[in-house]
Write a protein that binds this DNA or RNA. Structure first.
Lengths: 125, 125
DNA sequence: CCGCATCCACCACGATACTG
DNA sequence: CAGTATCGTGGTGGATGCGG
């Protein structure tokens, strides 16, 4: 059995299902936030510190989307000053292993891609 | 050993490495084109037929990027009418398993995400 | 048949300022 | 502390038409 038979998983209904989900988790920050939250419950500011470069706005939006999609739970404590904690749901945690697989590939082939790009790029851009 | 220790792979240098690679393979079509090419060498038009909804422009751009990054090889036959075939390189093929892992997750949790989104959405947007 | 060029709409994202 | 509001920008992607 060749592995390509499995790719029907991706192509499936023409890729609509996969694309729909991928379009959500493949934005600029989602994967990074999810990976960071694997450490446990974190507050808004802690997240902002642990994900270098993310803006308040993007962190808010990313967390809202993750919450809406059921990957992250949000707990607000009615205190002064306010405190909000974010944590992965079980479904959120289930995303970690596949995400790691992709991240591992990325790290492993990063250099090779750069090489290839450099060899290709001299003529234009 | 908890699995979260592995997430340093993702967070690593602040996520720059992973993000750089992910930003390339997580655009709208790349993963789908790679998955489709796992079937073997394909011509431009065949690809366009096998990836429903993709425009000529996007297919061209996606293939150029994949070629530049060393994931896809392009072979043009100097014939009339012209014929061009695309195929995965070894590095391209190595992307299939991690991509499948993510795709599997997507298919498996798609319904659950939709549910969650529906339950969240009534109030706004 | 293959694929590039042009025009255009949209939205992801960043910076900044303000609120409870 | 944890956001929301607003503005501006670049890149992504769709439609169409032309060229080798």
């Amino acid at each position: 059995m060749s592995q390509y038979e499995h790719t029907c998983l991706i192509r499936g209904d023409g890729g609509r299902t996969v694309r729909a989900v991928l379009d959500r988790i493949c934005d600029k920050w989602t994967l990074l936030v999810v990976a960071t939250l694997d450490q446990g419950r974190l507050r808004f500011t802690e997240l902002q510190r642990l994900v270098p470069g993310i803006s308040q706005r993007m962190l808010t939006l990313t967390l809202r989307h993750l919450e809406r999609d059921g990957l992250v739970s949000r707990t607000a404590y009615p205190e002064v000053p306010p405190r909000v904690e974010y944590a992965l749901t079980p479904m959120g945690r289930s995303l970690i292993p596949p995400a790691l697989a992709l991240a591992g590939w990325a790290v492993e082939h990063h250099a090779q891609i750069q090489e290839s790009r450099a060899a290709y790029g001299p003529q234009a851009e």
